[in-house]
Simulated scan of single mutants.
Amino acid sequence: MKKILVTGVNGQLGSELNLLSKNYSSYEWIFADRTKITLDDLELLSSQLNAIKPNIIFNCGAYTAVDKAESEKELAFKINNSAVELIAKFSKENDIKLIHISTDYVFDGTSSIALKEEADTNPINVYGESKLAGEKACLKDNPDSIIIRTSWVYSKFGNNFVKTMQRLMHERDSINVVNDQIGSPTYAADLAKAMMDIVEFPHWIPGIYNYSNEGEISWYDFALSIKELGNYECNVGGIPSSSYPTPAKRPEFSLLDKKKIKKTYNLEVPNYKESLKKFFG
């Protein structure tokens, strides 16, 4: 029986994979929190991987506190780069299939068309820099890896934009949401299923792939969809990013082109509104 190791089990994607695993009982699943897989202690990480001996690794664990990363650069790079490098080397040496999760934040946001996998990277914050460094290390040390870049992830688990909007729309009469950052959300349950579709596909085709739900929207548009589906009375206004400054800059445009993953792995990618309906269902 093949053994799948999932890092970052308490994150949104890890939690969705945990839920989904019940449909894939032909695999032995190892769901690792920080005590089982310690991404900020490389010596310990190495011994932990050797003890588990997986056949497949889903590296969903990461340092994801985008604003905090500006003041915790060393820790962000240790988890998002050094640990990824170690996992990639371990995977290569032991013939393990590795799917590593990355982000749209590797781009600078200056594009006006959906970003293909080979588009120029140029991160504008520490988090994006650390994730890009991890991508490069991953492909250098294990060219057989699959890297999936995703964006605006939400789920019923953990903290995310959708749950924040639900809370605020319940508590307040009006809220303002940024309307000049464009992309597409990713329902973590959809991404989890796509990862299993890749694992079960007859051919393993390494490289970088984009995955998010279909649709081109702003955070403001996303908030309006949440308001509609949740039947909230709250008034939602649109504001520019300049009115809501954050320690880390965000890319203004990070819409991902999904043609490659759809064609290579014969995947159907739902529209963001369909997936948001599933979230509310």
Rank of each mutant, 00 (worst) to 15 (best):
S102K: 06
S102F: 00
T103Q: 04
T103A: 01
D104Q: 07
D104T: 07
Y105K: 01
Y105W: 08
Y105E: 11
Y105H: 12
V106F: 03
V106A: 03
V106C: 00
V106Q: 00
F107V: 04
D108C: 05
D108H: 03
D108M: 08
G109D: 03
T110E: 08
T110I: 08
S111W: 05
S111D: 13
S111C: 06
S112D: 13
I113C: 03
A114R: 04
A114I: 02
L115W: 06
L115R: 08
L115G: 07
L115H: 06
K116A: 13
K116Y: 02
K116H: 10
K116D: 12
E117N: 08
E118M: 09
A119M: 12
A119F: 12
D120I: 14
D120S: 14
D120H: 11
D120M: 11
D120C: 07
T121F: 08
N122Q: 14
N122C: 10
P123Q: 08
P123A: 10
I124R: 07
V126T: 15
Y127Q: 10
Y127G: 12
G128K: 02
E129D: 12
E129L: 10
K131P: 08
L132K: 12
A133I: 02
A133K: 07
G134E: 05
G134N: 04
G134I: 01
E135W: 00
C138N: 10
C138V: 05
L139T: 02
L139G: 07
L139E: 04
L139A: 08
K140Q: 10
K140C: 01
K140H: 08
D141G: 04
N142D: 09
N142F: 11
N142R: 05
N142M: 00
P143K: 05
D144F: 06
D144L: 09
S145D: 04
S145G: 01
S145M: 00
I146S: 00
I146T: 01
I146E: 01
I146K: 00
I147D: 02
I148S: 03
I148T: 06
I148E: 02
R149H: 07
R149V: 02
R149T: 01
T150M: 03
T150S: 14
T150R: 03
T150A: 05
S151K: 02
V153M: 15
S155A: 12
K156G: 14
K156Q: 13
K156F: 10
F157R: 09
F157S: 13
F157I: 08
N159S: 13
N160Y: 09
F161L: 15
F161E: 12
V162T: 15
K163H: 09
K163W: 04
T164D: 14
T164I: 12
T164K: 14
T164H: 13
M165D: 08
M165A: 15
M165V: 11
M165E: 11
